[in-house]
Protein backbone atom coordinates (compact mmCIF):
# COMPACT_ATOMS: atom_id res chain seq x y z
CA UNK A 1 0.00 0.00 0.00
CA UNK A 2 1.29 3.44 -0.77
CA UNK A 3 0.28 7.03 -0.19
CA UNK A 4 0.15 9.70 -2.82
CA UNK A 5 3.11 12.10 -2.42
CA UNK A 6 0.66 15.00 -2.44
CA UNK A 7 -1.07 13.59 0.61
CA UNK A 8 2.27 13.30 2.39
CA UNK A 9 3.04 16.87 1.44
CA UNK A 10 -0.29 18.01 2.87
CA UNK A 11 0.33 15.96 6.01
CA UNK A 12 3.71 17.58 6.47
CA UNK A 13 2.31 21.10 6.10
CA UNK A 14 -0.46 20.25 8.55
CA UNK A 15 2.11 18.88 10.98
CA UNK A 16 4.14 22.07 10.59
CA UNK A 17 1.22 24.42 11.14
CA UNK A 18 -0.30 22.37 13.93
CA UNK A 19 2.90 21.20 15.58
CA UNK A 20 4.85 24.45 15.74
CA UNK A 21 2.88 25.92 18.70
CA UNK A 22 3.20 22.62 20.53
CA UNK A 23 6.95 22.66 19.98
CA UNK A 24 7.20 26.21 21.34
CA UNK A 25 5.07 25.16 24.30
CA UNK A 26 7.50 22.34 24.96
CA UNK A 27 10.51 24.69 24.72
CA UNK A 28 8.91 27.15 27.14
CA UNK A 29 8.02 24.34 29.50
CA UNK A 30 11.57 23.02 29.51
CA UNK A 31 12.89 26.50 30.03
CA UNK A 32 10.71 27.00 33.07
CA UNK A 33 11.84 23.69 34.51
CA UNK A 34 15.53 24.43 34.06
CA UNK A 35 15.03 27.81 35.72
CA UNK A 36 13.08 26.34 38.65
CA UNK A 37 9.84 27.99 37.68
CA UNK A 38 6.47 26.36 37.38
CA UNK A 39 5.39 26.37 33.76
CA UNK A 40 2.22 27.05 31.86
CA UNK A 41 0.57 24.21 30.03
CA UNK A 42 2.28 22.90 26.91
CA UNK A 43 -0.84 24.00 25.01
CA UNK A 44 -0.57 27.63 26.12
CA UNK A 45 0.72 28.87 22.69
CA UNK A 46 -2.52 27.61 21.10
CA UNK A 47 -4.56 29.61 23.56
CA UNK A 48 -2.45 32.71 22.89
CA UNK A 49 -2.96 32.35 19.15
CA UNK A 50 -6.68 31.76 19.54
CA UNK A 51 -6.96 34.84 21.70
CA UNK A 52 -5.09 37.00 19.21
CA UNK A 53 -7.11 35.65 16.30
CA UNK A 54 -10.37 36.53 17.96
CA UNK A 55 -9.36 40.11 18.62
CA UNK A 56 -9.90 43.07 16.32
CA UNK A 57 -6.99 44.68 14.54
CA UNK A 58 -5.86 48.14 15.60
CA UNK A 59 -3.73 49.80 12.96
CA UNK A 60 -1.57 52.84 13.43
CA UNK A 61 -2.86 55.87 11.58
CA UNK A 62 0.04 55.93 9.17
CA UNK A 63 0.11 52.22 8.28
CA UNK A 64 0.15 51.54 4.54
CA UNK A 65 -0.73 48.41 2.63
CA UNK A 66 2.78 47.06 3.27
CA UNK A 67 2.02 46.83 6.96
CA UNK A 68 -1.24 44.97 6.38
CA UNK A 69 0.10 42.69 3.66
CA UNK A 70 3.29 41.62 5.49
CA UNK A 71 1.77 39.17 8.04
CA UNK A 72 0.09 37.16 5.29
CA UNK A 73 3.19 37.14 3.16
CA UNK A 74 5.41 36.12 6.07
CA UNK A 75 3.05 33.31 6.98
CA UNK A 76 2.83 32.18 3.35
CA UNK A 77 6.58 32.13 2.69
CA UNK A 78 7.30 30.27 5.92
CA UNK A 79 4.73 27.60 5.06
CA UNK A 80 6.22 27.28 1.58
CA UNK A 81 9.66 26.93 3.15
CA UNK A 82 8.32 24.21 5.41
CA UNK A 83 6.83 22.40 2.46
CA UNK A 84 10.18 21.86 0.74
CA UNK A 85 12.20 20.61 3.74
CA UNK A 86 12.09 16.82 3.85
CA UNK A 87 10.55 16.14 7.25
CA UNK A 88 8.48 13.02 6.66
CA UNK A 89 9.39 11.88 3.19
CA UNK A 90 12.46 12.26 0.98
CA UNK A 91 10.76 12.75 -2.39
CA UNK A 92 8.30 15.53 -1.68
CA UNK A 93 6.53 16.77 -4.82
CA UNK A 94 7.35 20.41 -4.04
CA UNK A 95 11.02 19.75 -3.25
CA UNK A 96 12.33 20.23 -6.83
CA UNK A 97 10.96 23.78 -6.95
CA UNK A 98 13.29 24.98 -4.24
CA UNK A 99 16.72 23.86 -3.16
CA UNK A 100 18.48 24.91 0.01
CA UNK A 101 19.59 28.28 -1.42
CA UNK A 102 16.00 29.08 -2.36
CA UNK A 103 15.00 28.12 1.17
CA UNK A 104 17.35 30.77 2.53
CA UNK A 105 15.84 33.14 -0.03
CA UNK A 106 12.32 32.41 1.19
CA UNK A 107 13.30 33.34 4.73
CA UNK A 108 14.91 36.50 3.34
CA UNK A 109 11.61 37.55 1.75
CA UNK A 110 9.87 37.21 5.11
CA UNK A 111 12.60 39.22 6.80
CA UNK A 112 12.70 41.90 4.09
CA UNK A 113 9.00 42.60 4.41
CA UNK A 114 8.99 42.42 8.20
CA UNK A 115 11.76 45.01 8.24
CA UNK A 116 9.77 47.22 5.86
CA UNK A 117 6.69 46.85 8.05
CA UNK A 118 8.80 47.94 11.01
CA UNK A 119 9.62 51.17 9.19
CA UNK A 120 6.11 51.74 7.90
CA UNK A 121 4.65 53.22 11.05
CA UNK A 122 7.29 55.85 11.52
CA UNK A 123 8.37 55.21 15.10
CA UNK A 124 11.90 55.02 16.36
CA UNK A 125 11.44 51.46 17.61
CA UNK A 126 10.32 50.03 14.32
CA UNK A 127 13.27 51.51 12.47
CA UNK A 128 15.66 50.41 15.17
CA UNK A 129 14.36 46.85 15.00
CA UNK A 130 14.59 46.80 11.21
CA UNK A 131 18.10 48.15 11.18
CA UNK A 132 19.32 45.65 13.77
CA UNK A 133 17.51 42.72 12.20
CA UNK A 134 19.09 43.48 8.83
CA UNK A 135 22.51 43.72 10.49
CA UNK A 136 22.11 40.32 12.15
CA UNK A 137 20.84 38.90 8.87
CA UNK A 138 23.74 40.26 6.90
CA UNK A 139 26.16 38.62 9.33
CA UNK A 140 24.24 35.37 9.66
CA UNK A 141 23.42 34.80 6.01
CA UNK A 142 27.01 34.33 4.73
CA UNK A 143 27.69 31.95 7.62
CA UNK A 144 24.47 30.09 6.89
CA UNK A 145 25.30 29.72 3.21
CA UNK A 146 28.87 28.74 4.04
CA UNK A 147 27.58 25.94 6.31
CA UNK A 148 25.12 24.89 3.64
CA UNK A 149 27.80 24.97 0.96
CA UNK A 150 29.95 22.66 3.07
CA UNK A 151 27.08 20.21 3.29
CA UNK A 152 26.31 20.56 -0.42
CA UNK A 153 29.94 20.07 -1.40
CA UNK A 154 30.14 16.95 0.74
CA UNK A 155 27.01 15.60 -0.92
CA UNK A 156 27.44 17.12 -4.40
CA UNK A 157 24.03 18.71 -4.44
CA UNK A 158 22.06 21.67 -3.16
CA UNK A 159 18.80 19.79 -3.37
CA UNK A 160 17.55 19.05 0.13
CA UNK A 161 16.06 15.64 -0.64
CA UNK A 162 19.23 14.61 -2.41
CA UNK A 163 21.47 15.72 0.49
CA UNK A 164 19.30 13.89 3.00
CA UNK A 165 19.25 10.85 0.73
CA UNK A 166 23.03 10.70 0.40
CA UNK A 167 23.64 11.03 4.14
CA UNK A 168 20.84 8.57 4.76
CA UNK A 169 22.49 5.96 2.62
CA UNK A 170 25.51 6.24 4.91
CA UNK A 171 27.88 7.54 2.26
CA UNK A 172 28.83 10.62 4.18
CA UNK A 173 28.13 10.16 7.84
CA UNK A 174 30.37 11.60 10.56
CA UNK A 175 32.64 13.49 8.27
CA UNK A 176 34.79 16.18 9.95
CA UNK A 177 33.50 18.82 7.52
CA UNK A 178 29.91 18.03 8.49
CA UNK A 179 30.63 18.31 12.21
CA UNK A 180 32.07 21.79 11.79
CA UNK A 181 29.15 22.76 9.59
CA UNK A 182 26.80 21.43 12.24
CA UNK A 183 28.32 23.60 14.98
CA UNK A 184 28.04 26.59 12.68
CA UNK A 185 24.45 25.65 11.92
CA UNK A 186 23.55 25.64 15.62
CA UNK A 187 24.97 29.12 16.11
CA UNK A 188 23.15 30.41 13.04
CA UNK A 189 19.89 28.85 14.12
CA UNK A 190 20.08 30.85 17.34
CA UNK A 191 20.59 34.04 15.33
CA UNK A 192 18.04 33.38 12.61
CA UNK A 193 15.24 32.38 14.93
CA UNK A 194 15.92 35.20 17.38
CA UNK A 195 16.90 33.17 20.44
CA UNK A 196 19.28 34.01 23.29
CA UNK A 197 22.15 35.04 23.08
CA UNK A 198 21.30 36.93 19.87
CA UNK A 199 17.81 38.13 20.63
CA UNK A 200 15.45 37.49 23.49
CA UNK A 201 12.06 36.26 22.27
CA UNK A 202 10.32 37.14 25.52
CA UNK A 203 11.71 40.63 26.05
CA UNK A 204 9.74 43.78 25.73
CA UNK A 205 12.48 45.97 27.07
CA UNK A 206 12.87 48.64 24.44
CA UNK A 207 16.59 48.75 24.02
CA UNK A 208 17.21 45.02 23.83
CA UNK A 209 14.54 44.21 21.29
CA UNK A 210 15.42 43.08 17.81
CA UNK A 211 12.61 41.15 16.24
CA UNK A 212 10.04 42.31 18.78
CA UNK A 213 10.79 45.95 18.00
CA UNK A 214 9.79 45.52 14.37
CA UNK A 215 6.44 43.95 15.18
CA UNK A 216 5.64 46.17 18.15
CA UNK A 217 2.70 47.84 16.40
CA UNK A 218 1.00 44.63 15.30
CA UNK A 219 -2.20 43.46 16.93
CA UNK A 220 -5.04 40.99 16.49
CA UNK A 221 -4.83 38.45 13.68
CA UNK A 222 -1.83 40.21 12.14
CA UNK A 223 0.16 39.61 15.31
CA UNK A 224 -1.12 36.05 15.51
CA UNK A 225 0.17 35.33 12.00
CA UNK A 226 3.56 36.84 12.71
CA UNK A 227 3.92 34.96 16.00
CA UNK A 228 2.77 31.73 14.41
CA UNK A 229 5.22 32.19 11.53
CA UNK A 230 7.99 32.72 14.08
CA UNK A 231 7.09 29.45 15.78
CA UNK A 232 7.08 27.64 12.45
CA UNK A 233 10.43 29.14 11.58
CA UNK A 234 12.00 27.60 14.68
CA UNK A 235 10.31 24.31 13.88
CA UNK A 236 11.64 24.40 10.30
CA UNK A 237 15.17 25.24 11.38
CA UNK A 238 15.16 22.25 13.72
CA UNK A 239 13.69 20.00 11.04
CA UNK A 240 16.16 21.33 8.47
CA UNK A 241 19.04 20.63 10.84
CA UNK A 242 17.81 17.11 11.24
CA UNK A 243 17.37 16.68 7.48
CA UNK A 244 20.85 18.02 6.72
CA UNK A 245 22.81 16.32 9.47
CA UNK A 246 20.73 13.47 10.96
CA UNK A 247 18.24 12.37 8.30
CA UNK A 248 17.73 8.94 9.86
CA UNK A 249 14.06 8.13 10.15
CA UNK A 250 12.80 10.19 7.20
CA UNK A 251 10.80 7.84 5.01
CA UNK A 252 12.28 6.99 1.64
CA UNK A 253 9.28 4.97 0.46
CA UNK A 254 5.68 6.14 0.45
CA UNK A 255 4.43 3.46 2.81
CA UNK A 256 1.94 4.85 5.37
CA UNK A 257 3.61 2.95 8.19
CA UNK A 258 6.98 4.44 7.32
CA UNK A 259 5.43 7.89 7.21
CA UNK A 260 3.95 7.43 10.65
CA UNK A 261 7.31 6.20 11.95
CA UNK A 262 8.98 9.20 10.29
CA UNK A 263 6.54 11.49 12.08
CA UNK A 264 7.29 9.87 15.42
CA UNK A 265 11.04 10.03 14.88
CA UNK A 266 10.74 13.69 13.87
CA UNK A 267 8.88 14.48 17.07
CA UNK A 268 11.54 12.68 19.12
CA UNK A 269 14.34 14.56 17.37
CA UNK A 270 12.54 17.88 17.88
CA UNK A 271 11.98 17.11 21.55
CA UNK A 272 15.68 16.39 21.93
CA UNK A 273 16.72 19.50 20.02
CA UNK A 274 14.54 21.57 22.32
CA UNK A 275 16.58 20.31 25.25
CA UNK A 276 19.79 21.51 23.59
CA UNK A 277 18.19 24.84 22.75
CA UNK A 278 16.98 25.36 26.28
CA UNK A 279 20.34 24.45 27.77
CA UNK A 280 22.02 27.03 25.54
CA UNK A 281 19.42 29.67 26.35
CA UNK A 282 19.60 29.04 30.07
CA UNK A 283 23.37 28.93 30.16
CA UNK A 284 24.00 32.13 28.26
CA UNK A 285 23.00 35.74 28.68
CA UNK A 286 21.87 37.95 25.83
CA UNK A 287 24.78 39.58 24.07
CA UNK A 288 25.24 43.23 23.28
CA UNK A 289 24.39 43.98 19.68
CA UNK A 290 27.95 44.78 18.69
CA UNK A 291 29.31 41.60 20.20
CA UNK A 292 27.20 39.65 17.75
CA UNK A 293 29.90 40.22 15.14
CA UNK A 294 32.15 37.94 17.18
CA UNK A 295 29.39 35.40 17.73
CA UNK A 296 28.39 35.21 14.08
CA UNK A 297 32.02 35.57 13.02
CA UNK A 298 32.78 32.39 14.91
CA UNK A 299 29.87 30.70 13.18
CA UNK A 300 31.37 31.78 9.87
CA UNK A 301 34.77 30.52 11.01
CA UNK A 302 33.34 27.13 11.92
CA UNK A 303 31.68 26.83 8.53
CA UNK A 304 34.93 27.85 6.82
CA UNK A 305 36.83 25.24 8.84
CA UNK A 306 34.30 22.68 7.69
CA UNK A 307 34.87 23.73 4.10
CA UNK A 308 38.65 23.58 4.49
CA UNK A 309 38.53 20.16 6.11
CA UNK A 310 36.39 18.99 3.22
CA UNK A 311 39.07 20.03 0.75
CA UNK A 312 42.01 18.84 2.84
CA UNK A 313 40.73 15.67 4.48
CA UNK A 314 38.07 14.29 2.19
Amino acid sequence: MSMSPLVIEALQVALLIGGAPLFIGWVRMLKCWTQNRSSASIFQPYRDLAKLLSKDVVLAGNASWIFRFTPYLVFGTVILAGAVVPMLYLKLPLAPSADVIVLVGLFSIARFFTALAGMDIGTAFGGMGSSREMLVASLAEPAMLMAIFTVSLANRSTSLSHIAGVIYSGQSLFKPSLSFAFIAYILITLAETGRIPVDNPSTHLELTMLHEAMILEYSGRHLALIEWAGMMKLFIFMALGSALFFPMGIASVDDPLMIVIAGAVLLLKLAASAVVLVLIETGLAKMRLFRLTEFLGSAFLMATLGMLSFFILE
Binding site: I79, L80, L94, P96, S97, A98, D99, I101, S159, H162
Partner: peptide
Protein backbone atom coordinates in the same frame (compact mmCIF):
# COMPACT_ATOMS: atom_id res chain seq x y z
CA UNK B 1 18.11 17.64 -11.64
CA UNK B 2 19.55 15.85 -8.62
CA UNK B 3 22.29 18.44 -8.26
CA UNK B 4 20.08 21.52 -7.97
CA UNK B 5 16.74 22.70 -9.19
CA UNK B 6 14.67 25.85 -8.86
CA UNK B 7 11.25 26.70 -10.12
CA UNK B 8 10.62 30.43 -10.21
CA UNK B 9 7.02 30.00 -11.26
CA UNK B 10 6.52 27.36 -8.55
CA UNK B 11 7.77 29.70 -5.84
CA UNK B 12 5.78 32.61 -7.27
CA UNK B 13 2.50 30.70 -7.48
CA UNK B 14 3.19 28.95 -4.18
CA UNK B 15 3.67 32.19 -2.28
CA UNK B 16 0.61 33.77 -3.90
CA UNK B 17 -1.55 30.70 -3.33
CA UNK B 18 -0.63 30.13 0.31
CA UNK B 19 -0.87 33.83 1.13
CA UNK B 20 -4.26 34.05 -0.55
CA UNK B 21 -5.58 30.99 1.29
CA UNK B 22 -4.46 32.40 4.65
Amino acid sequence: PERASYSGIGVFLGVILVTAIV
